[in-house]
Design a protein around this nucleic acid. Sequence first.
DNA 1: CGCCAACGTTTACCCATGTAATCGATAGCG
DNA 2: CGCTATCGATTACATGGGTAAACGTTGGCG
Lengths: 120, 120
Amino acid sequence: MKISPAESVVMEALWRAAPRTAEEIAAEVAAPQGWSEATVKTLINRLLKKNAIAAEPDGRRYRYRPLAERAAYLRDESQGLLDRLFDGRLAPLVSHLSQSRALTPEDVAELKRLIAEMDE
Amino acid sequence: MKISPAESVVMEALWRAAPRTAEEIAAEVAAPQGWSEATVKTLINRLLKKNAIAAEPDGRRYRYRPLAERAAYLRDESQGLLDRLFDGRLAPLVSHLSQSRALTPEDVAELKRLIAEMDE
DNA sequence: CGCCAACGTTTACCCATGTAATCGATAGCG
DNA sequence: CGCTATCGATTACATGGGTAAACGTTGGCG
């Protein structure tokens, strides 16, 4: 049930638009990743085995569509990082990032807005 | 030079206190992880090969000490997640976490403080 | 109506990782 | 002084993941 980094590239493509054929997915992700079409097909199959995506027949081919939800994936990944590295707490992460890497004024403004919302 | 999750457990122990012997490290991490002492030794050796830690002779044994910096490790890991999942931007991550998982009032207060600081 | 191109499926291979046992040297006890 | 307990080093082995070629089926062109 764990989605690997390479697999997640395919998932992202499907989360962006679905259902799509293998060809369409490959057209979108293969070149940027430097992958052959065969590689994309392997990833699709592994995702099928993991029940992360579903295949619906469409004539001669299949159209794939995500079963796993992007929100859940994001949650698991970020939660995992938070737990592993920052004791599960958000503030240290933000603190660390704000030091190791300049945040844009937009970032700061956006954060401020978020916090204001949360506060209610 | 990539530190794997299991290896990072050893690194964390050394970041907490160093230099330490293999025995001391194992004493601290083996049981909680359900690892045998042999496993800890393997991880130490892999970290040595990666130049993530150094060994200084101390009589019959070695004392190990981190070479890689924790801050850099944290930076790489969180930056990686941010780039992979949130287009490199912090605000979406925070936004996501604030929805998928309740932040404690302390978290929010802490964030507010951080933002205030950044703003200057 | 047969062959080919296009699909999806299977198989392949190598490397990293998790997990650990075994080996070889040696310092110190008896 | 030799034997054993203890270290670090070496070797082991299964799994997962990245990357891709080979294979088998079949619908449609010629």
